[in-house]
């Protein structure tokens, strides 16, 4: 089928989809968009990139952590470095405290993505400015398999803005908002501990904790289901 479509539409040849990719492509059939937000499965994730240019830059690492409702599972985590396809510009790398050797020993992107999709399963993705991470993941999936992520996803930054505009209780509870929307300013604002050097995993963990701090305020404002959440936390 895929092969036939390729013949019709042309384009580059793709790898055969792995079972995890195939499974992930049909996630919409299994995710219950009516599930209550406080009971649904989530995976908070973050990617570390060589830069923000979709054409030139690539993923260095992916970190993720599982959640159910507002509960974070500290033992169900994912962190993987990606072996770069192109040689690295050295200055960007230092920020992430990852050495070239670390990366050269790592798995290739296809393998990491496969494990990541396996880890995500049927969960709803949660990220901070998640569209950036999704774009890079989609870019890679497109190159490899000619597909895009199908998992429902929600953005903690949009949820935050929505709550601040729509829920007086939320604004009161946290005594106002922050005008700086980057993950670290938000994390500081909501009192999250950040003693460790940040990498994709710790950023995913911070995102999960931010999501935790917002989640309880959603049902009283009418955001009951995963479907509601996805429309409020728009990407």
């Amino acid at each position: 089928m895929v092969g036939m479509l390729e013949k019709i539409f042309g384009g580059q040849r793709h790898m055969e989809q792995t079972p995890a990719v195939m499974r992930s492509q049909r996630v919409r059939e299994r995710v219950d968009m009516n599930a209550p937000v406080l009971e649904a499965d989530y995976v908070a994730f973050d990617t570390e990139l060589t830069g923000l240019d979709l054409k030139r830059d690539s993923i260095i690492s992916i970190g993720a952590i599982k959640m159910k409702g507002a509960g974070i599972y500290p033992m169900e985590t994912f962190y993987s470095l990606v072996k770069p396809e192109r040689p690295l510009k050295s200055e960007g790398v230092l920020v992430h405290e990852i050495t070239k050797t670390d990366l050269e020993d790592a798995c290739g992107l296809a393998g990491v993505l496969d494990e990541f999709l396996e880890f995500v399963g049927d969960a709803v993705l949660v990220g901070h400015f998640v569209s950036i991470d999704m774009n890079f993941v989609n870019n890679a999936l497109k190159k490899l398999y000619g597909v895009k992520l199908q998992s429902p996803a929600t953005d903690t930054h949009s949820i935050h803005d929505w709550l601040y505009e729509n829920d007086a209780d939320f604004a009161r509870h946290y005594k106002g908002m922050t005008s700086r929307k980057d993950l670290f300013s938000m994390a500081r604002r909501y009192g999250l501990g950040m003693e460790k050097a940040h990498n994709a995993f710790h950023d995913a963990y911070l995102t999960a904790q931010l999501f935790q701090r917002f989640l309880y305020f959603l049902p009283p404002c009418g955001v009951h289901s995963v479907g509601d959440l996805v429309s409020v936390g728009k990407i």
């Binding site: 974070i72 599972y73 033992m75 935790q212 309880y216």
Partner: peptide, 14 residues
């Protein structure tokens, strides 16, 4: 003991 440990957050009043 920690295998399935969960970390939850409850805002004041919940």
């Amino acid at each position: 003991l920690m295998e399935d440990i969960v970390l939850e957050y409850y805002p004041k009043g919940v």
